[in-house]
Every structure is written in C-alpha cells, then in structure tokens.
C-alpha cells in the first residue's frame, strides 16, 4: 500500500484517537505536562495505528444523541430488571436462547451491537459466528429488543435501516 493512500486512510482515525487521548491526558495530568503529553500522544497514535489499525467511522450526530439516550435509559431499566429478578424470592427467570442473523455490516457497527446487547435489559450476547448471533434472554424472547437495538446502532452510524431475518 502506498504511503499516500495509507495516510489518507489513517488520518481521520489518527485525529480521533489523538483527540480522545488529549482528553485522557487532561484527565490524568490535570492540565499539566503538555510538553511531555503532546509528543507522547503523537507517539501513542503512531504505535496504535501500527499495532491495532482502525478505520474511522463517521457517526451521525442525531443518531448519536438518540443512541446515548436509548443506552442510558435502557441501562437503568436493565439494571432494575435484573436486580428485581435477583432479589425476588421466587427468582423469576424466563430463559430463552435465540439465533439471529445480523444485518449490520462487519466492523464497528457490529462491535457496538454485540457490546451493547449484554448491558441492556434481559439480553446477553453469547456467540457470533459469521453473521449468526446467539442471544441469551432472561426476560422472555430477546428478538424484539435486539431488533430495536440494531435500528439504533444503524442510526448511530448513519446506515440505512437494516431489516432482520430470523
């Protein structure tokens, strides 16, 4: 791969990582030591692109807002739900395992989907083999929840809404 092509591909990702790392340095060093932090961030960005190359993925601002709101409200609900089940004397668990074909493209969108499933009410990601996602549910059929989550993730990355096959 030519250097120029690499640079144009890696540059957006490099900027995003550098910006996030600047926030991290601000948090760790409390605004001091930029003479060391600045070059350190540059070195870390270069090493990261060498060790774990990532591609920048544009986010949709409105989709991001909706995703964050959805994630926070569902996280709270999920926490309350599982706490209620754990503390309930009869331990009500409606266990159901489903295999679902993921329509989101491979890459960050799928990572966010699988990473989020286990934090939302009643669902746990168990396996991902090619396009087939296995989900474990303790609140009945996880299908509807996954369908809604996949739509939110598609919005987050500004992807066309992907329908789901069973």
């Amino acid at each position: 791969m030519s250097l120029r092509r690499r640079a144009t591909q890696d540059l957006p990702a490099a900027f995003i990582i550098a910006a996030l790392l600047a926030l991290l340095w601000l948090g760790l060093a409390e605004g001091e030591g930029w003479w060391f932090g600045g070059p350190a961030i540059l070195a870390v960005v270069l090493m990261t692109l060498h060790l774990s190359p990532v591609r920048a993925q544009p986010l949709h601002p409105l989709g991001l807002l909706r995703f964050v709101a959805y994630f926070i409200s569902q996280s709270l609900y999920g926490g309350l739900d599982v706490a209620g089940r754990a503390l309930h004397p009869r331990l009500p668990l409606l266990i159901e395992k489903r295999q679902i074909a993921v329509q989101l493209p491979d890459g960050p969108a799928r990572t966010v989907l699988v990473g989020t499933i286990s934090l939302l009410p009643g669902t746990l990601a168990v396996d991902l083999e090619d396009d087939l996602l296995t989900v474990h549910g303790i609140a009945g059929d996880p299908m509807a929840n996954i369908r809604r989550l996949e739509k939110r993730v598609a919005d987050l990355f500004g992807l066309p809404d992907a329908g789901m096959r069973i």
């Binding site: 996280s75 709270l76 999920g78 926490g79 309350l80 739900d81 599982v82 706490a83 754990a86 286990s118 934090l119 939302l120 009410p121 009643g122 746990l124 474990h136 303790i138």
Partner: peptide, 11 residues
C-alpha cells in the same frame, strides 16, 4: 453473567 454485566454497568 446477566446479573454481573447489567448491575455493574448501572452501579
């Protein structure tokens, strides 16, 4: 795992 991930996230 359900109990751990969700409760820890919110907690």
């Amino acid at each position: 795992l359900h109990a751990l991930t969700k409760a820890d996230n919110v907690g």
